[in-house]
Every structure is written in C-alpha cells, then in structure tokens.
C-alpha cells in the first residue's frame, strides 16, 4: 500500500466519522429504539395490549417465515398494484392534461370527476362485483380507482399552475400547439405529476390490501388476514411490516425515476 493509498483510506474514514457516526445518526437510531421500547412496555405492563406480540416475538417469527411463499404473495400484490397504477396513469394523465389545458374539457369532465371524488375508494368494493366477474379484475379495478384521482388532480393542478410567462415566452418563440404541450406545459408540470404518482402508488397499496382481505385470492392482504384467522399475530405484524416496506420501496422507485426525468431539479 502506497502513501497516497493510506492517505485516501484515512480520508475515507474521516468522512465516515464525520457523516455517519455523529449525533444526528445517534438521535435517529434512538427514535427507533424508543419506539420499540414503548411497544414492549405497552405490551408487557398494560392490560390493554397484553395480547399483542412483543417486538422480540415478531423478530422470532421472521425465522419461521416461508420465504418462497411470502415472495409469491408479494409478487401477487405487486402485480395488482402496478396493474392498477399503470392503467390509472394511462387514463388519468391524458385526462388531467385535458382538464388542465382546455377550458372546454374542464367544463365537460371536471364536474363529474369532482362529484365522484369525495367517495372513499374503499366504498366502491361492493359495486365492483357488478363490474367484473373475475376477482382479479375486481381487485385491479380497485387499485386503478385508487390511483386515478391523485394522478388526475395533480396533473391538472400542475398544468393550470404553470407560470404564465413560460408559455408566453414559448409563443414568442413560435412554438406549435403540440410543441407547447410537449415541450413547455408537460415539462413544467412534471414535478407535480410525479407528486401525484407518489400519492397514487400509496393509495393503490391501501386498496390492494383492503381488496385482498375481502377477496381471499392470495396477496399480502390475504396473507395477513389468514394469519389473523388462525391467531398467529406475530405473522400478522410481520405481514404488516412487509406491506409497509413494499409501499415505501414503490415510492422510492418513483422518486428515482422522477430524478432521472427531472435532472434540473436535483442539481445541488
């Protein structure tokens, strides 16, 4: 090892010490530790929660987990989530663009959208049985429905809030109508469109879990519900954790894609 190598390594460790081992990290870890501690105390020292598994029991359940089985359930749920999400994107994005871009489209479409929107998506579960015979289609419809509104609303909002000077400037540069949409309006609305997609993917996870709990057709929601019926509560909590993790990962994926799409926003 040469001297410069040594210097580089020591610099590396200095950086690590400075950026990783510091009070901020300690406090962050403490937050998690305190949460687990509060959980344990509530379970062990209060009557109200004594039936709930401790963190330790949940951790122990991790080793009894049938990995192959759980991955199949994750995969099933994920397919439903992504299916609904992409259908929501394919239908919601153009609709949001139309409502945001054209006043006539706004008057024609927006009131109906606004009328249906306040109904919580879960309230649609009974009706979906009438739409589709196949359970798989019913579930995907529900995830689609969950994704639809956040995408439409944020696309619409993003487009109507574009700084007026940008399209005006573009007009002065002689841009065509189509060019205006593709090269000015959509890029300008992109940040909010991605916000909509992030909200949407969160709601699709909510919908898939609710639908699977009722439908008994596999998936993580079903998996959690099944362990509830056989009273294996450590597994229930584990399942909840996995659902949360999947949701978070999907959200991160959208962030990563967003950063690739909008290089100009993360230059610092």
């Amino acid at each position: 090892m040469s001297v410069s190598d040594l210097k580089a390594t020591s610099l590396f460790w200095k950086q690590v010490r400075k950026n990783v081992i510091n009070w901020t990290t300690v406090r962050r870890i403490m937050s998690v530790v305190l949460f687990l501690l509060a959980w344990t105390i509530l379970v062990q020292f209060t009557g109200q929660f004594h039936q709930i598994p401790t963190p330790k029991a949940v951790f122990a359940a991790l080793f009894q987990l049938d990995l192959g089985g759980i991955f199949i359930e994750i995969f099933r749920s994920l397919l439903r989530v992504l299916g609904g999400f992409f259908i929501g994107l394919i239908i919601g994005l153009p609709l949001g663009v139309a409502i945001g871009y054209s006043r006539i489209a706004n008057y024609l479409i927006f009131p109906a959208v606004e009328m249906v929107r306040p109904i919580p998506p879960i309230a649609w579960i009974p009706l979906t049985v009438l739409f589709f015979i196949e359970i798989e289609s019913q579930i995907v419809f529900l995830t689609f429905y969950g994704a639809f509104f956040p995408i439409v609303y944020n696309t619409m909002g993003g487009i109507s809030e574009v700084d007026i000077r940008l399209p005006r400037a573009a007009m002065s540069f002689g841009v065509s109508k189509l060019g205006m949409l593709w090269k000015v309006i959509l890029p300008a609305a992109m940040p909010q469109i991605f916000t909509g997609m992030k909200v949407a993917i969160g709601i699709t996870w909510l919908m898939v879990v609710a639908a699977e709990m009722i439908a008994s057709k596999g998936g993580l929601g079903y998996w959690v519900w099944y362990h509830h019926t056989v009273m294996e509560y450590p597994m229930v909590i584990l399942g909840m954790g996995i659902i949360g993790l999947c949701g978070a990962l999907c959200s991160v994926c959208i962030d990563v894609i967003g950063k690739r799409f909008m290089k100009w926003r993360n230059i610092f």
Binding site: R168, A169, S172, P187, W264
Partner: peptide
C-alpha cells in the same frame, strides 16, 4: 419577442 421582468427561462 418579449423579454420579461425577472427570468422566464425554461428551468428544465
């Protein structure tokens, strides 16, 4: 062609 008050460059 208009040059506006404050910048109207396309940020993207």
């Amino acid at each position: 062609l208009v040059v506006f008050q404050e910048t109207a460059l396309f940020p993207w």
